[in-house]
Amino acid sequence: MNSKTSNNIATGVIYVLVAAVIGILVFLLGYILWTGIPHISWHFLTSAAQSFRAGGGVRDQLFNSMYLLVLTLIISFPIALGSGIYLSEYAPNNWFTGLIRTAVEVLSSLPSVVVGLFGYLLFVIQFNMGCSILAGAIALTFFNLPLLTRSIEESLQDVSQLQREAGLSLGLSRWKTITGIVLPAAVPGILTGIILSAGRVFGEAAALIYTAGQSAPTVNYGDWNPVDPASFLNPLRPAETLAVHIWKLNTEGVTPDAAAISSGASAVLIVVILLFNLLARMLGNWMYKKMTATR
Protein backbone atom coordinates (compact mmCIF):
# COMPACT_ATOMS: atom_id res chain seq x y z
CA MET A 1 0.00 0.00 0.00
CA ASN A 2 1.56 3.28 -0.99
CA SER A 3 1.47 6.40 1.14
CA LYS A 4 -1.21 8.01 -1.01
CA THR A 5 -3.73 5.20 -0.48
CA SER A 6 -3.01 5.00 3.24
CA ASN A 7 -3.50 8.74 3.47
CA ASN A 8 -6.84 8.47 1.67
CA ILE A 9 -7.96 5.66 3.94
CA ALA A 10 -6.95 7.59 7.08
CA THR A 11 -8.75 10.71 5.88
CA GLY A 12 -11.80 8.64 5.02
CA VAL A 13 -11.90 7.04 8.46
CA ILE A 14 -11.59 10.43 10.14
CA TYR A 15 -14.44 11.82 8.06
CA VAL A 16 -16.66 8.88 9.01
CA LEU A 17 -15.89 9.35 12.72
CA VAL A 18 -16.56 13.08 12.56
CA ALA A 19 -19.77 12.45 10.64
CA ALA A 20 -20.87 10.03 13.38
CA VAL A 21 -20.30 12.63 16.09
CA ILE A 22 -22.09 15.34 14.15
CA GLY A 23 -24.87 12.90 13.27
CA ILE A 24 -25.56 12.06 16.91
CA LEU A 25 -25.52 15.73 17.86
CA VAL A 26 -27.84 16.76 15.05
CA PHE A 27 -30.20 13.88 15.80
CA LEU A 28 -30.40 14.74 19.50
CA LEU A 29 -30.83 18.46 18.99
CA GLY A 30 -33.25 17.93 16.15
CA TYR A 31 -35.34 15.47 18.11
CA ILE A 32 -35.54 17.68 21.21
CA LEU A 33 -36.34 20.81 19.26
CA TRP A 34 -38.74 19.03 16.88
CA THR A 35 -40.80 17.52 19.68
CA GLY A 36 -40.46 20.48 22.05
CA ILE A 37 -40.86 23.66 20.06
CA PRO A 38 -44.55 23.09 19.17
CA HIS A 39 -45.31 23.19 22.89
CA ILE A 40 -43.52 26.45 23.55
CA SER A 41 -45.73 29.47 23.66
CA TRP A 42 -45.83 32.75 25.50
CA HIS A 43 -48.34 31.18 27.87
CA PHE A 44 -45.97 28.24 28.48
CA LEU A 45 -43.11 30.55 29.43
CA THR A 46 -45.11 32.90 31.62
CA SER A 47 -47.46 30.74 33.64
CA ALA A 48 -46.90 28.61 36.72
CA ALA A 49 -46.67 24.84 36.66
CA GLN A 50 -49.80 22.81 37.41
CA SER A 51 -49.69 19.76 39.60
CA PHE A 52 -52.77 17.90 38.44
CA ARG A 53 -54.36 19.79 35.58
CA ALA A 54 -53.10 20.24 32.05
CA GLY A 55 -51.89 23.57 30.69
CA GLY A 56 -49.12 24.37 33.18
CA GLY A 57 -46.08 26.41 32.26
CA VAL A 58 -42.48 26.69 33.39
CA ARG A 59 -42.26 30.32 34.48
CA ASP A 60 -41.00 29.64 38.01
CA GLN A 61 -38.64 26.87 36.95
CA LEU A 62 -37.10 29.07 34.27
CA PHE A 63 -36.63 31.91 36.70
CA ASN A 64 -35.23 29.56 39.37
CA SER A 65 -32.66 28.22 36.93
CA MET A 66 -31.56 31.75 36.08
CA TYR A 67 -31.47 32.87 39.69
CA LEU A 68 -29.55 29.78 40.73
CA LEU A 69 -27.06 30.43 37.97
CA VAL A 70 -26.54 34.01 39.09
CA LEU A 71 -26.08 32.97 42.71
CA THR A 72 -23.67 30.20 41.73
CA LEU A 73 -21.59 32.66 39.73
CA ILE A 74 -21.59 35.19 42.54
CA ILE A 75 -20.20 32.53 44.88
CA SER A 76 -17.83 30.76 42.52
CA PHE A 77 -16.41 33.56 40.40
CA PRO A 78 -14.42 35.37 43.12
CA ILE A 79 -12.98 32.09 44.39
CA ALA A 80 -12.13 30.92 40.89
CA LEU A 81 -10.60 34.27 40.02
CA GLY A 82 -8.39 34.17 43.08
CA SER A 83 -7.24 30.63 42.51
CA GLY A 84 -6.81 31.20 38.78
CA ILE A 85 -4.59 34.21 39.46
CA TYR A 86 -2.64 32.25 42.05
CA LEU A 87 -2.09 29.24 39.80
CA SER A 88 -1.13 31.31 36.80
CA GLU A 89 0.89 34.12 38.35
CA TYR A 90 2.19 33.13 41.74
CA ALA A 91 2.26 29.37 42.12
CA PRO A 92 5.76 27.93 42.08
CA ASN A 93 6.22 24.81 40.02
CA ASN A 94 6.40 22.24 42.82
CA TRP A 95 4.58 19.23 44.24
CA PHE A 96 2.13 21.39 46.16
CA THR A 97 0.94 23.22 43.06
CA GLY A 98 0.73 19.87 41.32
CA LEU A 99 -1.46 18.65 44.15
CA ILE A 100 -3.78 21.65 43.82
CA ARG A 101 -4.10 21.08 40.08
CA THR A 102 -4.89 17.40 40.59
CA ALA A 103 -7.44 18.29 43.26
CA VAL A 104 -9.10 20.70 40.85
CA GLU A 105 -9.26 18.00 38.18
CA VAL A 106 -10.72 15.46 40.61
CA LEU A 107 -13.30 17.98 41.75
CA SER A 108 -14.44 18.50 38.17
CA SER A 109 -14.91 14.78 37.56
CA LEU A 110 -16.95 14.06 40.69
CA PRO A 111 -20.30 12.47 39.80
CA SER A 112 -22.97 15.09 40.27
CA VAL A 113 -25.23 12.77 42.29
CA VAL A 114 -22.44 12.40 44.82
CA VAL A 115 -22.03 16.15 45.06
CA GLY A 116 -25.78 16.51 45.43
CA LEU A 117 -25.99 14.01 48.28
CA PHE A 118 -22.96 15.55 49.93
CA GLY A 119 -24.59 18.97 49.71
CA TYR A 120 -27.80 17.48 51.09
CA LEU A 121 -26.07 15.99 54.13
CA LEU A 122 -23.82 18.94 54.85
CA PHE A 123 -25.81 22.05 53.95
CA VAL A 124 -29.41 20.97 53.98
CA ILE A 125 -29.26 18.74 57.08
CA GLN A 126 -26.14 19.63 59.06
CA PHE A 127 -26.22 23.39 58.51
CA ASN A 128 -29.99 23.39 58.67
CA MET A 129 -30.38 25.36 55.46
CA GLY A 130 -33.26 23.21 54.24
CA CYS A 131 -33.75 22.66 50.54
CA SER A 132 -32.88 26.08 49.23
CA ILE A 133 -31.47 27.93 46.26
CA LEU A 134 -28.45 28.78 48.36
CA ALA A 135 -27.67 25.13 49.16
CA GLY A 136 -28.09 24.36 45.47
CA ALA A 137 -25.81 27.21 44.48
CA ILE A 138 -23.10 26.02 46.86
CA ALA A 139 -23.36 22.47 45.52
CA LEU A 140 -23.13 23.77 41.97
CA THR A 141 -20.13 25.86 42.95
CA PHE A 142 -18.30 22.55 43.39
CA PHE A 143 -18.73 21.84 39.69
CA ASN A 144 -18.29 25.32 38.56
CA LEU A 145 -15.08 26.04 40.44
CA PRO A 146 -12.79 23.65 38.59
CA LEU A 147 -14.07 24.70 35.17
CA LEU A 148 -13.86 28.38 35.97
CA THR A 149 -10.50 28.15 37.69
CA ARG A 150 -9.04 26.31 34.75
CA SER A 151 -10.43 28.68 32.17
CA ILE A 152 -9.29 31.73 34.11
CA GLU A 153 -5.83 30.24 34.61
CA GLU A 154 -5.56 29.43 30.91
CA SER A 155 -6.77 32.86 29.83
CA LEU A 156 -4.14 34.47 32.05
CA GLN A 157 -1.46 32.14 30.74
CA ASP A 158 -2.35 33.16 27.19
CA VAL A 159 -1.36 36.75 27.91
CA SER A 160 2.14 37.25 26.54
CA GLN A 161 5.04 37.34 28.97
CA LEU A 162 6.11 40.53 27.17
CA GLN A 163 3.09 42.29 28.62
CA ARG A 164 4.12 41.38 32.14
CA GLU A 165 7.67 42.54 31.49
CA ALA A 166 6.34 45.79 30.07
CA GLY A 167 4.30 46.41 33.19
CA LEU A 168 7.04 45.53 35.64
CA SER A 169 9.64 47.53 33.76
CA LEU A 170 7.38 50.58 34.00
CA GLY A 171 7.69 50.40 37.76
CA LEU A 172 4.36 48.73 38.42
CA SER A 173 4.18 46.31 41.29
CA ARG A 174 3.43 42.71 40.49
CA TRP A 175 -0.12 43.05 41.74
CA LYS A 176 -0.76 46.15 39.67
CA THR A 177 0.73 44.48 36.62
CA ILE A 178 -1.67 41.59 37.10
CA THR A 179 -4.78 43.62 37.82
CA GLY A 180 -4.03 46.49 35.48
CA ILE A 181 -2.57 44.75 32.46
CA VAL A 182 -2.74 40.96 32.50
CA LEU A 183 -6.32 40.69 33.75
CA PRO A 184 -7.86 43.17 31.29
CA ALA A 185 -6.01 41.42 28.46
CA ALA A 186 -7.46 38.10 29.62
CA VAL A 187 -11.05 39.34 29.91
CA PRO A 188 -12.29 37.88 26.59
CA GLY A 189 -11.10 34.42 27.55
CA ILE A 190 -12.43 34.68 31.10
CA LEU A 191 -15.82 35.82 29.85
CA THR A 192 -16.05 32.92 27.43
CA GLY A 193 -15.17 30.58 30.29
CA ILE A 194 -17.89 32.02 32.52
CA ILE A 195 -20.59 31.67 29.90
CA LEU A 196 -19.60 28.14 28.97
CA SER A 197 -19.59 27.04 32.59
CA ALA A 198 -22.95 28.78 32.96
CA GLY A 199 -24.31 26.41 30.33
CA ARG A 200 -23.32 23.44 32.41
CA VAL A 201 -24.78 24.88 35.61
CA PHE A 202 -28.00 25.66 33.81
CA GLY A 203 -28.45 22.10 32.66
CA GLU A 204 -27.51 20.39 35.92
CA ALA A 205 -30.21 18.32 37.62
CA ALA A 206 -28.79 15.48 39.72
CA ALA A 207 -26.90 17.73 42.13
CA LEU A 208 -29.97 19.89 42.69
CA ILE A 209 -32.66 17.33 43.44
CA TYR A 210 -31.65 17.12 47.08
CA THR A 211 -30.20 20.58 47.52
CA ALA A 212 -32.33 23.17 45.75
CA GLY A 213 -35.30 20.87 46.12
CA GLN A 214 -38.09 19.62 43.90
CA SER A 215 -40.82 22.06 44.70
CA ALA A 216 -41.49 25.46 43.25
CA PRO A 217 -43.51 27.36 45.84
CA THR A 218 -45.54 30.25 44.58
CA VAL A 219 -43.45 33.38 44.84
CA ASN A 220 -44.32 36.99 44.49
CA TYR A 221 -42.38 38.60 41.62
CA GLY A 222 -43.23 42.04 42.90
CA ASP A 223 -41.60 41.48 46.26
CA TRP A 224 -38.01 42.71 46.03
CA ASN A 225 -37.12 42.07 49.66
CA PRO A 226 -34.74 39.08 49.61
CA VAL A 227 -35.35 38.17 53.27
CA ASP A 228 -39.11 37.93 52.84
CA PRO A 229 -40.07 34.23 52.50
CA ALA A 230 -42.53 35.01 49.69
CA SER A 231 -40.04 37.05 47.69
CA PHE A 232 -38.78 35.66 44.40
CA LEU A 233 -35.30 36.79 45.46
CA ASN A 234 -35.25 34.87 48.72
CA PRO A 235 -32.20 32.57 48.48
CA LEU A 236 -33.41 30.31 51.29
CA ARG A 237 -36.58 29.14 49.62
CA PRO A 238 -36.69 25.78 47.84
CA ALA A 239 -36.57 26.12 44.10
CA GLU A 240 -37.14 23.54 41.43
CA THR A 241 -35.12 24.33 38.34
CA LEU A 242 -35.97 23.62 34.73
CA ALA A 243 -33.73 20.57 34.53
CA VAL A 244 -35.10 19.14 37.78
CA HIS A 245 -38.62 19.83 36.56
CA ILE A 246 -37.98 17.79 33.41
CA TRP A 247 -36.63 14.93 35.49
CA LYS A 248 -39.61 15.06 37.82
CA LEU A 249 -42.20 15.18 35.05
CA ASN A 250 -40.69 12.06 33.57
CA THR A 251 -40.49 10.12 36.82
CA GLU A 252 -43.56 11.09 38.78
CA GLY A 253 -45.49 13.60 36.71
CA VAL A 254 -49.22 13.18 37.12
CA THR A 255 -50.46 16.01 34.94
CA PRO A 256 -52.15 14.66 31.82
CA ASP A 257 -49.80 16.69 29.56
CA ALA A 258 -46.56 15.77 31.40
CA ALA A 259 -44.89 14.52 28.23
CA ALA A 260 -45.70 17.69 26.32
CA ILE A 261 -44.47 19.94 29.13
CA SER A 262 -41.33 17.88 29.46
CA SER A 263 -40.62 18.18 25.73
CA GLY A 264 -41.28 21.89 25.76
CA ALA A 265 -39.12 22.44 28.84
CA SER A 266 -36.30 20.41 27.29
CA ALA A 267 -36.43 22.53 24.18
CA VAL A 268 -36.35 25.70 26.28
CA LEU A 269 -33.34 24.35 28.17
CA ILE A 270 -31.48 23.46 24.99
CA VAL A 271 -32.27 26.79 23.35
CA VAL A 272 -31.03 28.71 26.38
CA ILE A 273 -27.80 26.69 26.48
CA LEU A 274 -27.28 27.18 22.75
CA LEU A 275 -27.82 30.89 23.24
CA PHE A 276 -25.20 30.89 26.00
CA ASN A 277 -22.69 29.23 23.71
CA LEU A 278 -23.47 31.56 20.85
CA LEU A 279 -23.21 34.55 23.15
CA ALA A 280 -19.87 33.31 24.48
CA ARG A 281 -18.52 33.01 20.95
CA MET A 282 -19.74 36.38 19.82
CA LEU A 283 -18.68 38.24 22.93
CA GLY A 284 -15.29 36.53 22.95
CA ASN A 285 -14.65 37.34 19.30
CA TRP A 286 -15.84 40.88 19.62
CA MET A 287 -13.69 41.59 22.65
CA TYR A 288 -10.70 39.84 21.14
CA LYS A 289 -10.99 42.04 18.07
CA LYS A 290 -11.30 45.10 20.22
CA MET A 291 -8.29 44.17 22.35
CA THR A 292 -5.99 43.20 19.52
CA ALA A 293 -7.25 45.78 17.02
CA THR A 294 -7.52 43.21 14.23
CA ARG A 295 -9.93 44.22 11.54
Partner: peptide, 9 residues
Protein backbone atom coordinates in the same frame (compact mmCIF):
# COMPACT_ATOMS: atom_id res chain seq x y z
CA UNK B 1 12.24 45.60 24.74
CA UNK B 2 13.21 43.89 21.52
CA UNK B 3 9.63 43.11 20.54
CA UNK B 4 7.29 46.09 20.65
CA UNK B 5 4.93 45.30 23.53
CA UNK B 6 2.31 48.02 23.86
CA UNK B 7 -0.61 47.23 26.14
CA UNK B 8 -3.84 46.33 24.36
CA UNK B 9 -5.24 49.77 25.16
Amino acid sequence: FQQPNPFPF
